[in-house]
Amino acid sequence: MSVINAQIPLHCRERTETDWLICRVEDHTFMGSGGVFNLDEIIEIFKNWVASII
């Protein structure tokens, strides 16, 4: 399965107003948004998603 055709389940975590994230695939593009300190967690979700499909 190619990365282009793979789907990622929606990841949505809302812990506080500044500790939150949403990750999804939209139009074959990984989309990750989150609070100011959630970048590491978003990258980890992306890496796990890619590893699961290759």
Rank of each mutant, 00 (worst) to 15 (best):
N48G: 13
R13H: 15
I42F: 04
I53R: 15
R15F: 00
R15M: 05
I22E: 07
I45Y: 10
T18H: 15
F46W: 03
E14W: 00
K47P: 03
E14S: 13
T16M: 02
I43G: 02
A51D: 14
E44M: 01
E26A: 00
L39T: 14
T16E: 04
L10H: 09
E14L: 11
I53T: 07
T29G: 02
L10S: 02
D27L: 05
I8H: 09
H11I: 03
I43W: 00
L39R: 15
R15L: 05
E14M: 12
I53F: 05
L10Y: 01
M1Y: 05
I4P: 01
N5A: 11
I4Q: 10
A6C: 13
S2N: 08
E17G: 13
V50A: 12
T29P: 03
Q7P: 08
S52D: 06
S33V: 06
E26Y: 02
S52G: 04
V3E: 00
W49I: 00
G34W: 01
N5I: 07
K47A: 06
E26H: 07
N48T: 10
E44T: 04
I45W: 08
T29R: 13
S33E: 11
N48Q: 14
F46I: 01
H28L: 06
I42V: 12
T16K: 06
I8N: 10
C12W: 13
C23H: 03
V36F: 05
T16D: 05
V50I: 15
I53S: 08
